[in-house]
Design a protein around this nucleic acid. Structure first.
Lengths: 199, 199
DNA sequence: AGCAGAGCCTATGCTTATTAGGCAATCAAC
DNA sequence: GTTGATTGCCTAATAAGCATAGGCTCTGCT
């Protein structure tokens, strides 16, 4: 039918990502993608290994984009200011690119996750953002994990309409950032606290 | 082939939930479930509407179970103690029942979500747990959202092996709870942005 | 007996994933 | 500039899954 459409791994990945943003990551399909390019389903298999491979590539692409946005946003900022723009950028990306965001949070084969520059960078940027709070390990890692958890959990719940209360979600988000900021400033050091036993 | 196997919506839902815990919610299939009971695929459709219906029922079942566990755990406790056992119970359920937990966090049709006693109860229990911290609206709702976000985000990231650092995940979890507790105690009231404390 | 309903079944049609093998245009090299 | 490989897309075919329609067979009630 269609000859020389110009299929490419990258074109497929980008189109797949767009499709995922529109219909949901779990609903993207080799067939739909092929239809989009006007080629037969089987034609895609010279470029991608299978659907999982496609999703993985979308995840890597999206993580890269998100890292890039965050990086640009926090450049030259530190402390609370950095925290606020990091959070804002993160949430905005998740809400405007639901399919891509879901892909980023998808379980990946360890090798792939380790290879993905975007995934690594998001974590690195989280550490970098906390620099001004002067935390030291293991508190630093604990703090990064708390931040990532809260950010991810919030936007996830928001995405599935998990917040039923009429209270403005945007306002709750700002409060959450505020509270996290105070926690970081006042981080309870491991030495002086109860609960340092690891069972 | 098989006559009178004794199919039931409940039996199907429970079996589906178990299957989801084993292979992942997204991979449960009408065929697999039918195979499990030794009946034809079509036979299930007198009991469930379709796969989405099945998944929804699993979500409602799981939410109910989770609510029940949490309810039992925080009964008679308050303040930090309640927070700690709530968190522990929540995480434990998520990690031991990954498929069920994913189902609970699945986007549901609004009517279903409103009807689901388990889903409602989980939120209610979150509010109840915070009673001792004496927060008032809208701070209370903001706090509940922060807690839910952090809990959900943490176990989600843990599930997808999102924490690469060698630092013990269990330890980070305990720290997160500790920090949340301090935040709740020291919640910055809306009126007085800069960290007013009221104990 | 006779009828209704429950609980399964077979048959069928559609969509999707994936593999195998083919053909045509392009490009490198003799 | 013909050859030969490579690229890029095709058709065909298999397998699995979702879903609907319609039928058979108990069981229990009247």
């Amino acid at each position: 039918m269609a000859t020389h459409v110009g299929l490419t791994v990258d074109r497929l990945t980008r189109a797949g990502a767009d499709l995922a943003d529109q219909v949901g990551l779990d609903k993207i399909t080799v067939s739909a993608l092929a239809r989009l390019f006007g080629v037969a389903d089987a034609s895609l298999y010279s470029h991608i290994k299978n659907v999982r491979d496609l999703r993985t590539r979308i995840a890597v692409l999206a993580a890269d984009e998100l890292a890039e946005h965050i990086s640009a946003a926090i450049a030259g900022r530190s402390g609370k200011e950095a925290l606020v723009v990091f959070a804002h950028t993160y949430r905005k990306y998740a809400l405007t690119h639901p399919g891509r965001y879901t892909a980023v949070q998808m379980p990946l084969p360890p090798e792939v996750a380790a290879e993905s520059k975007g995934h690594r960078r998001i974590v690195e940027l989280s550490y970098a953002m906390l620099h001004a709070y002067e935390l030291v390990e293991p508190d630093l890692t604990d703090a990064v994990r708390l931040l990532r958890s809260t950010f991810h959990g919030f936007v996830s719940l928001e995405q599935i309409r998990g917040f039923g209360d009429p209270r403005d979600v945007q306002a709750s988000w700002k409060r959450a950032i505020e509270v996290l900021h105070l926690s970081l400033q006042n981080w309870p050091s491991l030495r002086n606290q109860e609960g340092q036993r690891h069972d």
